[in-house]
Design a protein around this nucleic acid. Structure first.
Length: 483
RNA sequence: GGCGCUAUCGUCUAACGGUUUAGGACGCAGCCCUCUCAAGGCUGAAAUACGGGUUCGAUUCCCGUUAGCGCUACCA
């Protein structure tokens, strides 16, 4: 019988959640749900210098937006709390003390300056940069003396000399390190806070985490963690180190080369479904050719076995396409809500458009928009009369005879009563036949007249949405202005 | 520098030694459809980093090289 699956997402509150962090959270979430397990949110705020006010709230909001629900965490509680590391300090101190007593850790009184100097000298002598264990040679008396005099100290982990430390990684297979390569890592800082290494091992054990699923940047420190589990006499969890997310130039995804915060994408109008779908596929795929997935479908299909090993470039083009796909899948009613929401906060206009009208716009523009904002940006004429006419289109479509022809067309339109799309079409055909001209001779200038543009949905759709009066008004106005 | 990880079209990826003239998707180009723009359909260009092995047979296994990335903090 296997232990129940318990995984955790353990970000540090130092700013907005990174898309890489979101993917880690997502994979943990998917793995937990898929295996009927539990997802824990744990805040790793052991670096007081990097703490950012409001970051935790922000993080929680972002996860919620993405649809990633956790079962235990700072705001929802749970049996293994507290879920904020700064509220668990005594736990770390007690455990560090145990290591001290068993000789697996030792006091170090070295100053920042000495360590810096040491690191500068080591490469010159061809040595790997590691703590030189100066303080390990201190006698009990010397240690007591320094302690008594209040000399600041840290607790370091005493790495065994020549051991092979290995572990199995779900993604990378067997990984092994020579312990001689490992540094005597600081476990407890001089301010009494634990470092990541101590805190994450203690918490993962106490919270009974079964699988540690985290970014590849942790792979190199995993042997230290494995050793810590051993020192404590604990069974280590299983590990899965996720491939990194990359910039287009294949360096580690960073600011400078585009947006990295989930918040950035949210503000640009990306659907959470699209971002989640996209990010899930950066390092994972279902093994067949399906690409559009909802969160629930991802849960059904996800497995660690299908996670790849190589880093993946964050390619915005594909994300855009996915946003289009997900937006298109949404029912009209949902898009309507989003469009109304966008309209109220956009400065474009304050006029009121009823639902029926907006639904018409949505129907006409659906296949042509990637974002909700595109309804307004790509078809502004549904929200305000054309303020100008695209000059290239004028040049191409507006002939000298156009004015007279459109007047005839208006005459035809004005006789219509409560016209439907087909009625506009029939009327236009009649006008064209009367004048013995092609349909295009009317269609193109008319489109320009009512929209100011040369592109968009079918003309009759536009006319129907705008309505007869507005169509005639705009056409008349265009004739006046383009004559 | 040391240690570790990684390596299929520009990008995300499929292939779990043979069914492969290496498949799909995004993007790109062309054609069809068509009142324009989209959408859709069709077509095309585009990859196994390099060198050795193992094997009857390597994208797939092993070794080396190269390249990229990560770690190398009293940061996570």
């Amino acid at each position: 019988m296997n232990a129940p699956v318990r995984v955790r997402f353990a970000p540090s509150p130092t700013g907005n959640l990174h898309v890489g962090g979101l993917r880690t959270a997502l994979y943990n979430y998917l793995f937990a749900r898929k295996n009927n397990g539990v997802l824990v949110l744990r805040i790793e705020d052991t670096d007081r210098t990097r703490y950012l006010e409001g970051a935790v709230e922000n993080l929680i909001g972002t996860l919620k937006w993405a649809g990633i629900r956790y079962d235990e965490g700072p705001d929802v509680g749970g049996p293994s709390g507290p879920y904020v590391q700064s509220e668990r300090l005594s736990l770390y101190r007690d455990h560090a003390k145990k290591l001290l007593e068993t000789g697996r850790a030792y006091h170090c009184f070295c100053t920042e300056e000495r360590l810096e100097l040491m690191r500068k000298e080591q490469p010159k002598r061809g040595l790997p940069p590691k703590y030189d264990r100066a303080c390990l040679r201190l006698t009990q008396e010397e240690i007591k003396e320094k302690l008594d005099s209040g000399t600041p100290f840290v607790l370091r982990m005493k790495i065994p000399d020549s051991r092979v430390v290995w572990f199995h990684d779900h993604i990378r297979g067997e990984v092994e390190f020579q312990s001689g390569q490992l540094d005597d890592q600081v476990l407890l800082k001089s301010d009494g806070y634990p470092t990541y290494h101590l805190a994450n091992v203690v918490d993962d054990h106490l919270m009974q985490i079964s699988h540690v699923i985290r970014g590849e940047e942790w792979l190199s420190s995993t042997p230290k963690h494995v050793l810590l589990y051993e020192f404590f006499g604990w069974e280590p969890p299983e590990f899965a180190h996720l491939p990194l997310l990359l910039n287009p130039d294949r360096s580690k995804l960073s600011k400078r080369q585009g947006d990295v915060a989930v918040e950035d994408y949210r503000q640009k109008g990306y659907l959470s479904e699209a971002l989640v779908n996209f990010i899930a596929f950066l390092g994972w795929n279902p093994g067949d050719e399906r690409e559009i997935f909802t969160l629930d479908e991802l849960i059904r299909e996800f497995s660690l076995e299908r996670v790849g090993k190589a880093g993946a470039v964050f390619n915005v083009e594909k994300l855009n396409w996915l946003n289009f796909q997900h937006l298109r899948k949404k029912p009209d009613a949902e898009v309507l809500v989003m469009l109304k929401e966008y309209l109220t906060q956009s400065a474009v206009d304050s006029k009121h458009f009823d639902d029926e009208y907006l639904l018409g716009v949505i129907g006409a523009m659906r296949e042509r928009v990637m974002f909700v904002k595109d309804f307004v940006e790509k078809s502004p004429y549904f929200f305000q009369r054309p303020v100008q006419y695209d000059l290239d289109v004028v040049k191409k479509r507006w002939k000298t005879e156009t004015t007279e022809q459109l007047k005839v067309l208006i005459g035809e339109f004005s006789r219509l009563e409560n016209p439907q799309k087909e009625d506009y079409e029939a009327a236009l055909h009649r006008a064209a036949e009367t004048m013995k001209i092609g349909h295009g001779d009317l269609i193109h200038p008319l489109r320009l007249a009512v929209s100011g543009m040369g592109t968009g949905p079918g003309l009759y759709d536009i006319l129907f949405i705008l309505g007869k009066d507005e169509t005639i008004r705009r056409t008349t106005s265009a004739i006046k202005r383009l004559e």
